[in-house]
Every structure is written in structure tokens, then in C-alpha cells.
Design a protein around this nucleic acid. Structure first.
Lengths: 158, 158
DNA sequence: GGTGTTTTTGCAAGTTTGTTTCGCGGAGCT
DNA sequence: AGCTCCGCGAAACAAACTTGCAAAAACACC
């Protein structure tokens, strides 16, 4: 599924992706009109890009506040030992926590950057106790609480 | 559209959201079978949650590498003056940049946290020149380059 | 520059999916 | 009880997706 060789995308594909990244419920007929292609042609391109892994998923975006998960938090995590085994272990732990929405392994002054969504600070406090204080490979972590979500998405410019 | 009063969601709604956050192309009939509801009932609930703003959008997730945007970068930005007008100005600027995928206004040792997607470090360098060095209200910024995207999504636990 | 091959398109039919309508039944209220 | 209000399911309906096929580009190779 992962694109080992970079699939070739033409201008049609990019326009289609652009539309689907905004609203993937757009009818193929409408997309076709927008890009000057027939609906079946659009459908075939979408199918191909899905098979190639260009389109990774089709998902609904849910307002966290509406489901009682009102608090978004950023955390930078610095580890003590950066051996391959320790790093893999950390990756597995972070990936397994449902509150962790995003997790990146980074260069710079920290080793991991996390985006966490929780219903309350109490829950975040409990999470830090489990994930950070309870992990003796975590040297330190810095917390940033989001006051405003100015722009949230996973769209990439095409 | 924004839920000023919290709409209450029952167990059916949450199960439906859970499915749609994974794959919003799942047929309503299939969802109905999974949650023990008829397809029209599922359809009405989805429509209601969309109108209430619980479901904010329906989007395709595109692999950044597949469209030549292979580099993900985190940036913490610290500003000099935190007057309302200055902050609003910064928010507008960050929101307008297509390379900025996510932007949060945060408490803590920084004021903004950005998630940026670019095709190359050269492009990132150009972006920093424009957004940070070119903005005399930016005191300092710290860059974290993602080596591995361990977990990426916008799903919230229900 | 022509020719055969491959690829991709558009159209039309067939199938699946989404949507509306309508009647039914339960929860809450007087 | 009798009433209304919601939300449900079954079926009819409308819209969208999918597939088969023939024609038109695009391409490689003489």
C-alpha cells in the first residue's frame, strides 16, 4: 500500500485530490465538471490513487468539544537513552494511547512531539503520570495547552 | 454551525462517529448493522450531527510524500507583544499559509505551535524568512523536523 | 512520417447506495 | 386514558457509483 515508487500524478489527479481533501462527499460528476473529465474517469483515478496509497483514508472530522474532549495539548518529550530498542518501545507506547492523536519522532531539542486530546486537565495529569513519570526513560517533557485551534487539518498543498 | 449548547450524543451516535472517523465511505446499511439500527436511522443521525457541527468535515487523507511534500516540521513561535491586535494578526498570517497544516495558540513557553508540511528544507527556509524573520513581532522560534510520523490523525476518542 | 500498441477517455447500462415518505409505537405530559 | 411528540423501520424513490465496450489520444518503434 505504501508508495515504494512514487506514483506519477498529473494535473487532473492533483485537482481531484485538492477537492477531496476539502470534501470527499463531493459527487464524482461534480468533480468531473470542475476538472473537465467524465465521472467514470474521475472514479478510476480515485480508485487508482487509493490503491497506490496516495489517498490513505477517508474520514469524518469530529469536533472534539462536541464529544467532551475539549482540551488539546502539545507535549515535547525528551528521552534519556536513544537506543533503537528504547525508541521503538516509546513509539509503541505512544501509538497505543487513544488520547494521543498525533505522534512524531523529531530532531531538535526534543525527541518526540505529541498532540493529545483529553476531556479534562485531570485526565491529562493522569496520562502524564502513566506515560512520562511512569517511564524511566523519559528525561523531561514540556506541556503546551491549546487556547485556540486556529487551523486544524491534515490537508497538504498539491 | 458551532455547537454553542452541547448537543447530547447517545451510545448510537458515538458508535457511528467512531466508524465514520475511521472510514466515512462505510455504507449506512453496514453502519446500521454494526450498531443495530436501520439505514434511515443512521442517515438521520449523521445528518443531525453534521448540522449541529459535531461532524465538521468529510475529507480524504492524502499521503504527503506521494504529492512531493515529504517533510513535516514542528515550530514553536514566541512573540514579543501579545496585544489582542498583534495576536489576531499573527493568527491570520499563519492561517493563510497553505504550508501550515495546523496552528494552535498555546500557553506555556511558546505562544504558537505550528505543524508545517513542505517539499524541501529550502522551501522551509524560505518560509521562515517570510513568516518569522520577516515579522518583527516574532521574538524567536524553535524548529523540530519530523523523522518519523508514528501516528497521524484527527480522530478523537468517543 | 506512418503504424501498431498501450493507455485513457466517454457513453450507456446495471448495480449499489443514499434519501424521502409514510405509518407505527413508545415516552412523557394533562 | 387520551394526547402529542419523537424516533424508528419498511418500502418506494432518487442519486451516485461501477462496469463493459468502442473510440480517441498518447506513445514507441520502426
Amino acid at each position: 500500500m505504501s508508495p515504494l515508487f512514487m506514483p506519477q500524478l498529473d494535473a487532473f489527479d492533483r485537482k481531484i485530490l485538492d477537492i477531496l481533501q476539502r470534501d470527499n462527499t463531493t459527487p464524482q460528476r461534480t468533480i468531473g465538471e470542475a476538472v473537465n473529465l467524465s465521472a467514470p474517469a474521475v472514479q478510476r483515478r480515485i480508485k487508482r490513487m487509493t490503491e497506490e496509497g496516495v489517498i490513505r483514508a477517508n474520514v469524518a472530522i469530529v469536533d472534539p468539544a462536541a464529544v467532551g474532549q475539549a482540551i488539546t495539548i502539545f507535549v515535547e518529550v525528551e528521552v534519556i537513552s536513544e537506543t533503537a530498542e528504547q525508541i521503538e518501545q516509546a513509539k509503541r507506547e505512544f501509538a497505543a494511547a487513544p488520547q494521543i492523536q498525533q505522534c512524531y519522532y523529531v530532531t531538535g531539542e526534543a525527541d518526540f512531539v505529541l498532540v493529545i486530546v483529553v476531556p479534562s486537565m485531570a485526565e491529562y495529569e493522569a496520562l502524564t503520570r502513566r506515560l512520562f513519570f511512569g517511564n524511566n526513560n523519559v528525561k523531561r517533557f514540556r506541556t503546551f495547552v491549546a487556547m485556540d485551534r486556529i487551523k486544524v487539518g491534515l490537508g497538504v498543498p498539491t
